[in-house]
Design a binder for these strands. Structure first.
Length: 487
RNA sequence: GGCCCCAUAGUCUAGAGGCCUAGGACGCCGGACCCUCAUUCCGGAAACAGCGGUUCGAAUCCGCUUGGGGCUACCA
């Protein structure tokens, strides 16, 4: 079995494309076949610089690996459609000679007019067929006028698409028109190039998004005209934006890269994508791509288009953030920490920071932000927190008492429980509840009122820094420097 | 407009005639725990689009309607 993913390098890889690629890949691998990456770059106008390599990078990060592709030449290459032009032209010529295709000299203006006229009459906008029956002797052929090549589509009968997911789908040939297979610039159109390349690359199962189901009868006609054996087809449902329309830039983040930039782990993203239109036989939701290979079958692919849900994606990411080994998370979060301009060389390790903060982060951005206080003293204190926890006049005294007790405590006792004991002792001494110590302390140390448990936080921050911050805040409070501090 | 595909809660899904008073997940609401937030745990609201058939019996089969999506380019 051989499948393929054939994106056009006209932008970034959006999650719909990634999901289609993933399913094609899993389908091939489940049957121990090959997965091919072919870049469909025939439309030079839509070509976007660098998008081919961006596409490949995104695919790789998701763990979707091709056996043959533009960067991994195999025996059936080249794998960039533009480099197969000679082949396309050769087959177009063959169809011309065989009379299954013809040159069409109609101008775009003429076609547009004819189309609009038919639309006005509420007729399907079919090519009118002006050039279909031109004689070989027609002087226009030697006139040097630009032309396209059209396939001569049967005027009656039906073309049946035998789809692995959709079943038998029947199309009336009379509703198809003589579509263009070679443009005026002598490059092939999608429906022509795709056939020649799929056949040439010996793709046994054409798995692609459902938007191509309507194109399939046209392609089958090309297969037949060329005398090629038909592959199997499987049309995978689309991924829709939350408003149920086709994915586009206006829907915010839709590209794999953007999600990665938002701090979604590729493992979480691909796991989420896997659940969009497919479910495991045993209903489990957490899987790696490798886990899914033995489980993946087309029978379990949904027929309905799926709407992606950012909330569930983030939830899944949070699960990975909690479950993956700390070292992996550290590696993943490091660029995000750097982006925040944090220098973590001194003080707590990133490992300790990740272990401390990962439980309540949804994205790597959250995580980096939540660790920031470990290496940077708070520049500002949450106003509501200040009002609530810094207002009592005893606060400076309490913080200083705490600082002193912590300073005096045995470094060997610098553990969660050891620190808790110090807090309890100070609270008892001051005749207050432990919470009355904890809240101002967290605010003094981190600048905010939410975050990790205080004792583990203090433990990671370390004795010296903790004591220094407490004293600094106590001093500032006493001098009124923090009163009404807004930002 | 024409052609094609699709239809279980807000979202992702389980379900292939009786196991369904429709199961799970996210989200939402409430509660427990707690030093806050988050996590975790417990509980709750929430769906078979509608109408006709077929059948002893229909979420499951058929038809129609409605709704959504796709295609209808010298884009892919």
């Amino acid at each position: 079995m051989r499948t393929r993913y054939a994106p056009s390098p006209s932008g970034t890889l959006h999650i719909g494309g990634a999901r289609t690629a993933l399913f094609s890949y899993l389908f091939a691998k489940h049957h121990e076949g090959q997965f091919v990456l072919r870049v469909e770059d025939t439309d030079r106008a839509r070509l976007v610089e660098g998008s081919e390599s961006a596409l490949m990078r995104s695919l790789r990060l998701l763990g979707i690996h091709w056996d043959e592709g533009p960067d991994l030449e195999g025996p059936l290459g080249p794998y960039r459609q533009s480099e197969r032009l000679a082949l396309h032209q050769q087959y177009a010529e063959q169809l011309l000679k065989g009379g299954q295709a013809y040159r069409c000299y109609c101008t775009p203006e003429e076609l547009k007019q004819a189309r609009e006229a038919r639309m006005a009459q509420k007729l399907p906008p079919r090519y009118m067929g002006t050039c279909r029956n031109r004689l070989a002797e027609d002087p226009i052929h030697t006139s040097g006028q630009p032309y396209v090549i059209r396939l001569k589509v049967p005027l009656d009968g039906v073309t049946v698409v035998d789809d692995l997911i959709r079943g038998h789908v029947t199309f009336e040939n009379s509703l198809l028109d003589d579509f263009v297979i070679m443009k005026a610039d002598h490059t092939p159109t999608y429906n022509f190039a795709a056939v020649i390349d799929d056949w040439g690359m010996q793709i046994s199962h054409v798995t692609r998004a459902e938007e191509h189901l309507s194109n399939t009868p046209k392609q089958i006609l090309v297969y037949q005209a060329l005398g090629f054996d038909l592959p199997q087809f499987a049309h995978i449902p689309m991924v829709l934006a939350p408003d149920r329309s086709k994915l586009s830039k206006r829907h915010g983040a839709t590209a794999v890269e953007e999600y990665l930039d938002q701090g979604i782990l590729p493992q979480a993203l691909v796991n989420y994508l896997l659940l969009l239109g497919w479910s495991a036989p045993d209903g489990r939701e957490f899987m790696t791509v490798a886990d899914a290979v033995p489980l993946f079958t087309l029978e379990r692919v949904q027929h309905t288009a799926a709407v992606y849900d950012q909330k569930k994606l983030e939830w899944m990411n949070a699960q990975y953030l909690k479950a993956l080994p700390v070292t992996e998370i550290v590696a993943a979060v490091t660029p995000f920490v750097e982006k925040l301009g944090i220098s973590w060389g001194q003080g707590p390790t990133l490992d300790a920071g990740v272990a401390l903060a990962r439980e309540r982060a949804h994205t790597l951005v959250d995580l980096a932000q939540a660790m920031k206080f470990l290496w940077e003293r708070p520049q500002a204190f949450d106003p509501k927190g200040v009002q609530k926890h810094f207002t009592p006049l005893e606060v400076p005294i309490r913080l200083e008492a705490l600082a002193e007790a912590l300073e005096r405590s045995d470094t060997a006792a610098w553990t969660h429980d050891g620190i808790m004991e110090v807090f309890d002792a100070v609270a008892k001494n001051l005749d207050i509840k432990r919470a009355e110590l904890i809240h101002p302390c967290r605010l003094a140390l981190t600048g905010v009122t939410v975050g990790p448990g205080l004792f583990e936080l203090v433990q990671v921050l370390g004795p010296q820094e903790t004591v220094a911050r407490l004293r600094q805040v106590a001093t500032n409070l006493r001098e009124g420097a923090l009163k009404g501090s807004q930002s």
